[in-house]
Each structure stands twice: as structure tokens, then as C-alpha cells.
Write a protein that binds this DNA or RNA. Structure first.
Length: 413
DNA sequence: TCTGGGGTCCTAGGACCC
DNA sequence: TCTGGGGTCCTAGGACCC
């Protein structure tokens, strides 16, 4: 038996832990740049605010109904997520952290999985303040399905088996894990409307619609385990840092600043993972929603002669790539840096005849990181990253970083 | 006016090899 | 008139997930 523990309306729930007055009231959390609604309390869902809707489309509705609108506070959510995970890990020897708000737990051999789930749910709620739901099933895909159904159940814990045909018949085909909008359309076209139809369709038909991946999903729904638990997260193959700009950017100098910042950030992630990047890609794009403005998007890739984690090399190359794809006369909305083909820093192939990256350089980078970790991001940065950063994103109503910043601790009494 | 960010996997097609 | 067979590697694009 596999359990999927999923935090309810996670970002909203995190905010409510520190502002209990938001309990029972409509709340939404916005994506970066205060762009879209990415988390909604049940009350907000009832008002008809859908997942991912652009905020400007529901702003009036929010104002009319007294919805509390918050910018995202990823530092807080990340820390709360770690707390939830640490509680969950007490209950299952084998566990996979699947996303910021979901974990799979292996319940093989557990005598009464539902009882255990209820205990876990209670403990997480008590110790972290975050409400969770738990779905149980013989495979990951079935536990995902059970979890979805458990959200509607007041008890918050639900078990499903591949033999529960009448339950499967009630699940829309798009609600299956691994079936998105496109595959949903194509499946409906061949007459598959719900999970029962999906299970009963011939494997060859499923395969012709969605390849081996979708056939695997079908087997999983039939109770056959095809997707295993991944206790140790696989090392990342790529890492990306990108942002939409707070306002359109036209000048190369501004783009260079922005791209330098993304490059430094992506480099930081790579160093943290103890990896080196083998290549780098820079991309930029105008606002694809502004149909009447001239559109342009491009990207360019370059392979490092030797895998690296050196921010100065990364920034230098990012700027070279940017200049090669930049074209004047466009209002750019977004740019980003992707570091490609990450390899372990311990097993990286060096150059045969020369040596890159002096020990001095490495010490310099480490010192910079320590300065920033202690005194904040403005205490030390590369000149290329710029000072004014007029392009930086909007985030109007971010709550304090209650749990990760001494300056922003909640005040009691 | 205003529309997120960060990933993975699979497949088809082209370039190239012998 | 007739124009092979069997590979690998890389990339772009499309699908999905949260």
C-alpha cells in the first residue's frame, strides 16, 4: 500500500499558521510578479477563482468579496514544507518527497493503513499547523487518485483499490495523474471519458494516444506497480533561473544585468548540489500575451570546455550568449539562464593540457557566499548584476519570513 | 495596465558513421 | 531499369508534473 500525503491549499495554509485571523476566510496567494493565483483557500475556490487565473481578471471579484490577496513567500513555504516532511518521516521507513507539498509513504506491511493515516494527519496538524489529506492505494497513481477524492472527504483520509469500479467511473479522465489537457482531449476522442473507461480500453489504443508513458499509467491504475519509490532524489540534470520583469525591458544593458543575476543564482544552485554545469543556455522573450506588439523569442546554447560552477565564468558566458540573441526594438518580458547537463563535481572530467579555476578563485567565491549568507544579498555581488535593477519583479504584499529571518520573527503580545 | 517558475521524460527527424 | 542496411547521437518540440 502506498500513501500520498498532500498539504491542503499549501501556500494559503502556511500563511494562516501565522495569521490565524485568515481562517475561514477567502485567501489567495499569487505567483511571482503578482501574476496569477497559485493557491486558493476553499472559500476562494467557492467564489469561482480558478487555479492559475491571472490576478487582473479576478481583482474586482476579490475586492468585492473581501478576499485577502498575498504575494508568494517562498522562503516561508520552503521552511514549512521541511517541517511537514520531518514529521511525516517519523511514520514511514520509506518515503519520497515528491513536491513542496506532497510526499509518498510506503505502507507495505502496515496492518491498518487508514488508522495510521489518521494518526499522521492529526500529528502533522498539531505540530506544524498545516492540514493535510492522505490517499491510499496499491500504486502511486491510485494513491494520487485516492488523495484527490480525500480532499472532498471531511475525514481527509481515503483508500482506493483497482477493483472499486464505481469509484473509477466517477473520476474524469483528466483527473488521472499523467493525463493532462491535451491527452484528455485525445482520449475523449477515442471514447475514453473516465478512469474506468481508461482502465478498460485496450492497451494498444492507450499506447497509440500517449505512448509508453500513458500505457504505464494505465497499468498503474490497474493496480500494477510501474512507478517505484525514489527515496533519494535523483541529482538534477538541468537547473534554471528565470523571471518575468516587473515592467517591459528594451535596453541591452538592463537585460545584461538581469541575466547576470539569473546566472549567479543558477550557479549558486549548482554549487549547492555539488555539481558542475557542462553547458549553458540563455533565453529571452517578449510578452506573448501582447498580440499587437512585435514578438520575438530566442535562445542559444554553449558548451563549456570544462564543466564548471564558477559564477564569473557562468556570467561571462551568459552575457556573450545574450548579446548574440538580443535584437533591438522589442519590449522584452522575460529572460532566463539554464545550466545544462549537470555532473557531480567529484567525478567531473577536467582538461588535459590546462587547468581552469584557480584555488584563489574558488576561495573568493566561497567568501562571497559567506558574506551574502551572513549580511544579505546586497552585501556583496558582481558588478555585472547592477545596482538599480529597475527590471526586478513586483511583489506587493509579501508576508514576513517568520521562520527564517531574525528581523521578521512574529511578535507575540 | 496587469498573464509564474522550475523541472522530467519521450519521440521524431536529421546528421553522421561504417 | 536498377539506388542497402544498420547503427548512434543530438536536438527540438510536445507532453506531463507541481
Amino acid at each position: 500500500m502506498i500513501a500520498l500525503a498532500d498539504c491542503n491549499n499549501f501556500y494559503v495554509s502556511c500563511e494562516r499558521v501565522f495569521r490565524p485571523s485568515l481562517e475561514g476566510r477567502p485567501v489567495i496567494v499569487l505567483s511571482n510578479n503578482d501574476g496569477c493565483a497559485v493557491a486558493r483557500s476553499n472559500e476562494a475556490k467557492e467564489l469561482g477563482i480558478s487555479m492559475g487565473v491571472p490576478y487582473h481578471q479576478v481583482k474586482k471579484l476579490c475586492e468585492r468579496n473581501g478576499v485577502t490577496v498575498l504575494s508568494s513567500n517562498y522562503e516561508l513555504y520552503g521552511d514549512m514544507s521541511r517541517r511537514v516532511v520531518s514529521v511525516l518521516s517519523r511514520f514511514a521507513p520509506e518515503m519520497e518527497v515528491y513536491s513542496i507539498d506532497e510526499s509518498f509513504l510506503n505502507f507495505d506491511g502496515v496492518e491498518s493503513p487508514l488508522d495510521l493515516s489518521r494518526r499522521i494527519r492529526e500529528t502533522v496538524g498539531l505540530w506544524t499547523g498545516i492540514p493535510i489529506s492522505i490517499g491510499l492505494g496499491p500504486t502511486k497513481t491510485l494513491s494520487k487518485l485516492a488523495n484527490r477524492l480525500s480532499k472532498k472527504d471531511a475525514a481527509g483520509c481515503l483508500e482506493i483499490r483497482e477493483t472499486d469500479l464505481e469509484v473509477l467511473a466517477k473520476v474524469e479522465v483528466e483527473d488521472i495523474w499523467g493525463v493532462g489537457r491535451r491527452l484528455g482531449v485525445r482520449l475523449r476522442r477515442i471514447g475514453v471519458r473516465n478512469a474506468l473507461g481508461f482502465v478498460e480500453a485496450p492497451a494498444s489504443a492507450i499506447r497509440s494516444v500517449g505512448g509508453v508513458t500513458l500505457e504505464r499509467t494505465q497499468r498503474e491504475l490497474c493496480g500494477l506497480r510501474c512507478i517505484g519509490m525514489e527515496e533519494v532524489p535523483q541529482p538534477k540534470k538541468n537547473t534554471c533561473s528565470s523571471r518575468s520583469f516587473g515592467k517591459p525591458v528594451t535596453e541591452l544593458e538592463d537585460l545584461e544585468e538581469a541575466v547576470a543575476n539569473y546566472a549567479v543564482k543558477a550557479g549558486g544552485k549548482v554549487r549547492k548540489e555539488e555539481s558542475f554545469a557542462s553547458g549553458i543556455q540563455v533565453f529571452l522573450a517578449t510578452n506573448r500575451f501582447s498580440e499587437n506588439l512585435p514578438q520575438y523569442a530566442n535562445s542559444r546554447t554553449l558548451a563549456f570546455d570544462e564543466p564548471t560552477d564558477d559564477p564569473i565564468r557562468i556570467v561571462t558566458n551568459a552575457k556573450i550568449l545574450l548579446r548574440s540573441i538580443y535584437r533591438q526594438g522589442f519590449a522584452y518580458k522575460k529572460a532566463g539562464v539554464i545550466l545544462l547537463d549537470l555532473v557531480s563535481s567529484k567525478r567531473s572530467q577536467g582538461l588535459l593540457f590546462e587547468e581552469h579555476g584557480s584555488e584563489n578563485r574558488r576561495r573568493f567565491v566561497r567568501s562571497m557566499e559567506q558574506v551574502v549568507a551572513t549580511y544579505g544579498p546586497n552585501a556583496g555581488f558582481l558588478g555585472a548584476q547592477g545596482i538599480n535593477r529597475s527590471w526586478s519583479m513586483k511583489r506587493k504584499s509579501r508576508t514576513p519570513r517568520y521562520t527564517t529571518s531574525w528581523e521578521e520573527l512574529p511578535v507575540v503580545g
